[in-house]
Design a protein around this nucleic acid. Sequence first.
RNA 1: GGAGGAAUGGCAGAGUGGUCGAAUGCGGCGGUCUUGAAAACCGUUGAGGGUCAAACCUCCGGGGGUUCGAAUCCCUCUUCCUCCGCCA
Length: 423
Amino acid sequence: MLPLNTIRENADTLVRALAKRGLDAQPMIDEVLELDQQRRDVQTRLDATLAEANQLSREIGNLFKTGKAKEAQELKARSGELKELSKELSEALNTAAEALQQALYQLPNAPHDLVPAGSSETDNEVVFQSGETTAAGGEALPHWELAAKYNLIDFELGVKITGAGFPVYKGRGARLQRALISYFLDRNTESGYEEVQVPHLVNEASGYGTGQLPDKEGQMYELRDDKLFLIPTAEVPVTNMLRDVIVERAQLPLRYTAYTPCFRREAGSYGAHVRGLNRLHQFDKVEIVRVEEPANSYQALDEMVAHVKALLESLQLPYRILRLCGGDLGFTSALTYDFEVWSAAQERWLEVSSVSNFEAFQANRLKLRYRDANNKPQLAHTLNGSALALPRILACILEDYQEAEGIRIPDVLVPYTGFDRIG
RNA sequence: GGAGGAAUGGCAGAGUGGUCGAAUGCGGCGGUCUUGAAAACCGUUGAGGGUCAAACCUCCGGGGGUUCGAAUCCCUCUUCCUCCGCCA
């Protein structure tokens, strides 16, 4: 949710920025400004009414104290009127505030200057590409065949237990995934991210805090009896740790890393391109989250990008970095870099990380603030990124590291796996 | 799951119907003193709305009610604590 004062002060800039999403935001902005004005008008009238009522109560109290009960009784009549009026105004205020809130919820974050205009992923900008993208050539097997061949992952078993998109990892496949998790957590921790273990179910307030709610509940699994949601990403519980918090400036930046499973309904996505590990309903991910002063948040974004780069370099996987265009940019993000790794057998790029700066968009919903140089509470900036998403990394390692007689394990992982090849 | 108790400012903790946004202590910040520091003393110190600035309004876990007036009384929800039961 864009902060109201940003909308009031920079309406024109916002409209121009939002145009990059292919959105004509002018009518929405106008509506917000009008609803804001209405809300304030009602608030002003309510305040005046309450002020008079408070004054009157004091007078009545004094009259009673000095034994002038009769005069006090007379004033009660006016008090009753004021009460009636304040009740009406209070309801009007709620209505106005609710309408404003709803309008604000509809507005996506304003894209940063660097975001290219564009309508789909074809308009994303490749900002970096590493070396060779062909590792194994025409003989390469896709990871689902490798997984079957070496008994690493059993997709059918997952179907039996739960359904499609819930694979069972076995033996060295399970061990390799666990190794990756540990490796990523260790590297993140070394870089100053504090490891946290968080709930995998979140309440509604948390869903609103990071922007999954309203409107996107269809993407999450919901436990209706308890009004809880399975997390689609660790971003939700981790960022919501800071909900309703005012952070001292000296404590910034806050840096967290968390490993969690992620649950996504992915309704409507089927077909060959979702085979194997490409798209799952449950997958593992190690996430990094930062809270920053606004002045530092883009430097922080660059650091996070550099960090994820270093992880991929250390695994020696071919990858590229995309700057998402306006049309592909997430609702809550101002600037996002996607990382994609080359899948040698499928001969396509697989997204393994998405690193975003949300600026004050989430903080505004979360009421996450810090004290500025004048000690005044201001909205902080939040950022997060995957470091990294496991299944696709696993898929690319299997495919890109395959040899005639098995699969090699990237050097950095060997201390974690305890073996240096599969097969 | 059963029975009790509690929820107040960064923390601790007063406050049971009227000038209480809230005593006091600790912590924080500023100052006096000091070569410097500590101690001591003085001052200051919640958030949001609103205003050029003020006035003013809201907030004592959430919601509702009683009353001219609620942190204080009533209802309800949530959370926490104690005891019992169950349990990884």
